[in-house]
Each structure stands twice: as structure tokens, then as C-alpha cells.
Design a protein around this nucleic acid. Structure first.
Lengths: 210, 210
DNA sequence: AAAGTTTTGTTGCTTTTGCAACAGAAAATC
DNA sequence: GATTTTCTGTTGCAAAAGCAACAAAACTTT
């Protein structure tokens, strides 16, 4: 997906880099960061996967976003004016580059190699983010659980160039991601199987239409 | 919202600018552009407002995004691999800067003033986009029509720093935007009025809680 | 390998949402 | 300023989604 961005280059540059950047490791279920206004933190996920979750006043948990390798996150991307808490939670062991910036233009006084590369790659990294958000919006605007599921499956199928693919998260999390009730989603999956739209073996899905 | 980006500066630079940029006007309901892979078009809305809409195979129309002054759009932001048609439709008379780029890094051979400024402002413009998309996702992940409405009203209230504000689009379009059935939304609005959560006079809403 | 925990699969019942249809209000067009 | 079109407000009914609860399977942890 990221043609010219290479996280390995990034890391190499990082080694002898500026003091504004830290590399940290997190265990599963640890909180990587929380979105707080003026904290000015910008993160790149080097390995593992993590979720951006919101806990609302009633304690309901919503997966707002799901991050994998190369994804960028931090409160720059967010209008942190809601009352709700936004946390990034590690779903597996994660390595993260955490960068504290003074201003949104990401200019480093020392003009170190890391920052040069960051400045170069940033538009691209952010564009990837916009693309994935747009896709997410497109899924979420679908009206029925069935359409959301099929939309998502199509997407995975297009990405993997195959009618058979593995879901990148648990069915419980998929329901959260598509913003539907889990049992309703399971019911719909069952119907899709019965109506021969899909074949399902655990988290492996095969599309049977067209 | 855009502190350092100023569309007027942009336009001034544009006047004696490069041949890759065009300024065009569109009447209400005209199609400004459609998202086609490899078209490599990037647009900035100078005035008016427009919607990004999807027509699916059944002819259902969904408002994927709503653009106002300073908003950027184009298929760069989109993974144009779906079968569905994506169109940007003018909702009022619109002026648009249309920029054809060769590569995603937006470098202009002549290095004209327009491009210099574009390169400077692009991260900021795109970040605004990410912020608004994240907000949209947050609204769409809310499970009930009521929560979507209240979430959206809170947002408008926070933006205008007032408990009273005017909806920026018609109720019909609002339903499309929140991805709910219009009549269900009207019903919910009625209940919110009856339960004294809100006061409503046409498109002017007043929040009565907290 | 046993115990504990999380995920999956299922179902009856309730609530919410969506659909269809219509009338009046408002806006746009002629 | 009359006519057509779009938008708003409403409702009965049908369909879909959500809730609650439980058992079985899969996975962690001890």
C-alpha cells in the first residue's frame, strides 16, 4: 500500500535521531496513548496491531479505528472536544514510534535525518489514512448489516485479490468495527451462508457470488 | 478552522500560475467531478457547497461527504476500487480550483508560487480532512438515530459556541448524512422535542440540556 | 492437563428502524 | 403570481436490529 514509505528506513534513521522521538514497546491490552488536547503526540505503529476505542458515559465501548503496521495516529487527527475518552489499546505486542511535536508543521530545529524523512513521507502517510477513513465511512453509511458485511468482504477480497481471505480481527471486534450488534451480525452471517453468498470456516471467508 | 491556510492567498498566487491548475464555476446540481482511477485530479472548493454522493446498483443515493469552502477533494483521497459511482455534485453555485497532478507528491517542474504554497498548506488541508472524517466516523458508529442526532447537535453547538445553531443542510440531507431513514429521524426529532431535549424551529435547533 | 477466560454460535422476545404513502408548507420555476 | 417541484411532518405496518441469556468451542493461563 505504501509504495515509497518504508518503515525500515524510518527506523534506521531513527537510531541516531533527535530527542523528540521515542521507540516504545507495549504488551497486549496496554494503553499506548490517550487523546488529550495539547499533548501533541504523533505515533507510528511499527509492529503489532492496536485499536482506537471510545468509552462513552454509559461504559459502551466502540472501536473507532483499527491500526496495523505503518498506521499513524495521535490527537492531531482528532478534534478532541468530546467528553468521551479516546484510548489507543494494543491488541497484540506493539512497537510504536512516539513523536512529540511543537507545531503542526513538524519542523525540527536540528533538521535531523528522521525529520527530513518524516516531512517527506507525511503527506503520503496521511493520505493513506484519509483513504482508509473514507472507506470506513462508506461501509458505515450502508444501511443494513448484510450490506456492511458484504461491503467489507468485497474490500478484503479486492485487497487480497482473492475470493478467499481471512478476517483480520475477531467476529466480536468486526461487529464493533461495522457498528452492529454482534448477535445480529452472526444471524446475518448464518443467512449469508444458507443463501450461498459466502462460505465460512472460522475466520476464513470465501465469496461465492459473481 | 484553517489558521494559516488562506484561500485568498491561494487565489492571488493562482492568477499568474501554472497550466496544471484551472478555476471553474458550476451551477447547482451540476456534477463537478467524478472519481475515476488514474484521473489524478485534486480539487479545492473556493466557494459554495457540494456533496460527494454514491449511487449504488439499486439507485440508492448516499451522501458520503459534504464539502464547504476550503475543503479538498478528489480521488486521491479515495480507494476507487468499488463498483459504485462516486460523484461530486454542486449544491449551490460553486467555484473550484481543479489541479491535475502527475504524482502524489505534488511537485511542479516550474516550481511556481502556487505549487510552493500548495506544498506548504497541503498537510494542513489534509489534516483538516482527517479530523472531519474521524468526526464523521464517530457519529456513524453511534448505534441509534437519537445518539447520532444528539452527537451531531453537540458538534454544531461546540463549533458555534452556542446552544442555538442552524443546520447546514436540509433535514432530508441530514438523514442521508447520518445514514438513517428520514421518517425515522423526523420521529426521533419529534420525541426529542416532546422530551424537552431540544427546541426546534425549522432548521434552527436549541439544546435544552446541561 | 485443568481451570479460567474469551469468543462463537444460537435463539426468543422487544424495540427500533425502515418503508410507503400522503398532505401541507416552502421553495423554485415558469 | 400561478404552477410545479422539493421538503417537511406524520402515521400504520413490516422488517431488521438489538438485548439477554446460554451452551459449546477455542484460547490462555496456571
Amino acid at each position: 500500500m505504501n509504495l515509497s514509505f518504508d518503515i525500515e528506513d524510518f527506523l534506521r534513521d531513527f537510531e541516531n535521531s533527535c530527542n523528540k522521538v521515542q521507540k516504545k514497546s507495549f504488551e497486549k491490552n496496554q494503553v499506548i496513548t490517550s487523546y488529550i488536547q495539547k499533548r501533541n503526540q504523533f505515533c507510528i505503529l511499527i509492529s503489532g496491531n492496536a485499536d482506537l476505542v471510545r468509552y462513552d458515559l454509559n461504559g459502551n465501548r466502540t472501536i473507532i479505528d483499527h491500526f496495523t503496521k505503518n498506521d499513524v495516529f495521535g490527537e492531531v487527527f482528532y478534534d478532541v472536544t468530546t467528553n468521551n475518552e479516546l484510548l489507543v489499546e494494543a491488541k497484540s505486542t506493539c512497537e510504536v514510534l512516539i513523536y512529540s511535536y511543537q507545531n503542526i508543521h513538524y519542523k525540527c530545529k536540528q533538521n535531523c535525518k528522521f525529520h527530513q524523512r518524516l516531512t517527506e513521507c507525511l503527506p503520503e502517510l496521511i493520505l493513506d489514512k484519509v483513504t482508509s477513513l473514507n472507506m470506513r465511512v462508506e461501509l458505515l453509511t450502508k444501511r443494513s448489516t448484510r450490506d456492511k458485511l458484504l461491503g467489507y468482504f468485497n474490500l478484503l477480497s479486492t485487497r487480497t485479490l482473492s475470493k478467499t481471505f481471512k478476517l483480520p480481527f475477531s467476529l466480536t471486534d468486526l461487529a464493533d468495527y461495522l457498528s452492529v450488534d454482534r448477535s445480529a451480525m452472526m444471524r446475518e452471517l448464518k443467512l449469508l451462508k444458507e443463501e450461498n453468498f459466502i462460505k465460512k470456516d472460522g475466520k476464513t471467508i470465501t465469496l461465492l457470488y459473481k
